[in-house]
Nucleic acid binder design. Sequence first.
DNA 1: GTCACTAACTGACCGACAGTCATTTTTAAA
DNA 2: TTTAAAAATGACTGTCGGTCAGTTAGTGAC
Lengths: 232, 232
Amino acid sequence: MGTEERKAREKEQRRETIIDAAEKVIFSKGLDQATMDEIAKKAELSKGTLYLYFKNKTELFIAICERGSELLNSRINKILTEDRTGLEMIRMLGETYLDFVRQNPDYYNAFMYYENLRNTEELENSDAAQVCEENRQEAMTYMTRALQIGMQDGTIDDSYDPKELAVILHACTRGITMLNHMRQTGHHFKMLDNMDIDTSSLFKNFLNLVGKGMATEKGRDIKMTNGHSSET
Amino acid sequence: MGTEERKAREKEQRRETIIDAAEKVIFSKGLDQATMDEIAKKAELSKGTLYLYFKNKTELFIAICERGSELLNSRINKILTEDRTGLEMIRMLGETYLDFVRQNPDYYNAFMYYENLRNTEELENSDAAQVCEENRQEAMTYMTRALQIGMQDGTIDDSYDPKELAVILHACTRGITMLNHMRQTGHHFKMLDNMDIDTSSLFKNFLNLVGKGMATEKGRDIKMTNGHSSET
DNA sequence: GTCACTAACTGACCGACAGTCATTTTTAAA
DNA sequence: TTTAAAAATGACTGTCGGTCAGTTAGTGAC
């Protein structure tokens, strides 16, 4: 009998419905201002029901982060399958990351909030948080892989430790995307507007800077002639 | 009569007392878990009194951030007075920043939380937040200045726009310090521990990477031979 | 010394909200 | 139709940020 499966499916659907509602409310007014009652109302359920699907408000929020992190990773892991030099892959990873931030400022905002959750226990016991962490780790693996490819194809300076370089690049990219994000969300961050600096030029120069730092002569030549590819 | 001044002084002292208490409570259990009652108790005052000195909990928290930002800036603005090449100044600015994060993880944590406060209005009307923003801007100015010096003394590639480069470097440094910070505070961030990468090596390589990206041949030579100075 | 006035302080109280649980409603197998 | 389990409900509880009417302490005038 398919009753069991149907029920499981419905349960999963309801769960998604709740996350949908939570996104709408939390994205529009922020986590602190969003109330469980309002989310319940938006989901056309009672508050109590929310607690049948999520342990608490934080868990529900982390489920949103999980969604975002899945979305981001689904884009990132396409890149490694393409036929490019390692250096190009690195550049594309960075661009993909920035595009994600631009297109999904709400998810990125959620990521930033997520990182500020101090309570380790709460996150330790959360399946959703576990998935987020795994995705993060996975993204790092892709980056390391791209660097190794670059070191083999001679586009990236192989005097660095690829894992360490991946961590550094990831951190720097985070810094840059955060900047862009803050400007975009109007985050009391007039700094960039005071100086009139446009984001895409900023990001281009960032990639050039670190690109120059890690590229070999060969990689540098390819890259300097053209923002993207060049080979076929 | 000095009564007025004495009173003003006492009022200021009381304000500081409250911030002291707030730091103790908030640093130990986090902003959300800290209650105004507990802060009041620690300050040996009643809750009501807290609200005579601070508009609300957020304002009190921002006052903590203000302290931290003043402390950070007091260290940063010493560097520009020293007699060094521009590239060395940049390196020292970065190191100072990292040292601050290492020595004052609580303040840095507060900074991170501060940036997540979305409500622009709340921050717009806050004097303390205004000071924080000014300090941030000031730090950026110092960085730009150091870059200009480096471009003049020939240690830094002058094909970049100094202001833009300053923004990029600042963002990257934030990314790196955040990484270090998260590891330090045990922030459910096992990533770095999984790979065994030590922070100082990480930071050294970061500086080398961006250093290589922006240094001229001359600057690169000076820097590569010795982490710090070389001239007298 | 004491009176009058003000500034500083207090803590009981309020409203809002996260989270609970006894009760009701729905579902589906017997 | 009966019945038992599963799902959903919403009134209720405890906590906490913020308020405010009332109290206390400090100051200057006489």
